[in-house]
Design a protein around this nucleic acid. Structure first.
Lengths: 171, 171
DNA sequence: TATTGTTATACTCTATAACTATA
DNA sequence: TATAGTTATAGAGTATAACAATA
């Protein structure tokens, strides 16, 4: 298992590293032509996603949650009793890859499991008090982070952008 | 080295797998509340990027190029003689991770290296005739792919979306 | 001394197969 | 027979350190 284990809910699992390979040299103002790539939705969506995630990693480091951890906590917070299987299909996570995450959140005392009322195979996930406290702060941070990330975007533009992105990936 | 090696420029390096963990069960129309996550730019940008990349992988499989391979080929195509170092800083790829890609493209006969005119440490990258032919087709596929991906988006909406995404990640 | 390209390697992320216990 | 959760593991993606050749 590559996940760390600690009882301290505020300890972060790993240091967020520098996001990517920035130029080591001083000059080189990048007179490289990337106009075709910049005309593609996929290229721009990926670059934008990575840029937002980089900010997310820095701002969420104090809470010790990566983007995927936050997504899981958010689903649990807003859907108490949700099962692992439901989280997987909602967030497009493969079941074997969720096991370690839930285990880690459990060890940190953020998440608790309760027997499922109807199905003895399943277990409902809930936030502990500590988990709820941490999630409340993390969610507030995530909200305020939006303004930083969308720096040169007006609120209207941000709404437009999110609406268009949803149109792309939603069936 | 985990990269494959083949002399056939049209052979694909690997099969594009199913994109993610869809529900195996029949029902479960996902009445899970994800409204907060869906209010976040990062979440939507990542989901959209993954959706586009999934289509890209399928459509580009005949050419044997992943998104990163296509990006490298595109930069070389539009900037003949570009160095590895320039590609790295342009595409945010770490130098050690580019080595294998260039090696692979070279083995497939798509890319050739020529001595740099001014700097004997560096080597300029160029497309071979086969590389140019393959890239022309791949670029045309990438362009036509845009319409598929942005299915329910009007051309104006697509332009708006790309413009807003650029605002997010561009310094 | 700094940079280009490189090797080796470690860590993280994503994916598949196969198992158990329940349904 | 099918599903929930799990284990083990393979493969791909991303990161750092350190080196030789050249600037």
């Amino acid at each position: 298992m590559s996940q760390h284990s600690t009882a301290n809910a505020l300890r972060r699992p790993r240091v967020p590293r520098k996001t990517a390979a920035r130029s080591d040299s001083v000059g080189e103002p990048s007179d490289i032509d990337t106009s075709f790539l910049e005309s593609l939705l996929g290229y721009n969506a990926r670059r934008a996603a990575l840029a937002v995630i980089a900010v997310f990693l820095r701002r969420m480091a104090p809470y010790g949650v990566r983007p995927v951890d936050f997504s899981v906590l958010s689903v649990v917070a807003h859907n108490p009793g949700v099962t692992s299987r439901q989280i997987c299909s909602t967030l497009d996570i493969l079941p074997p890859n969720l096991v370690g995450m839930v285990k880690s959140l459990q060890k940190r005392g953020l998440v608790v499991r309760k027997p499922h009322p109807n199905d003895r195979r399943a277990q409902g996930l809930h936030l502990s008090d500590a988990g709820q406290t941490l999630y409340n702060e993390a969610q507030a941070t995530a909200s305020s982070l939006e303004r930083d990330v969308a720096g040169r975007l007006t609120p209207d533009e941000l709404n437009t952008l999110i609406g268009l992105l949803r149109k792309v990936y939603r069936t």
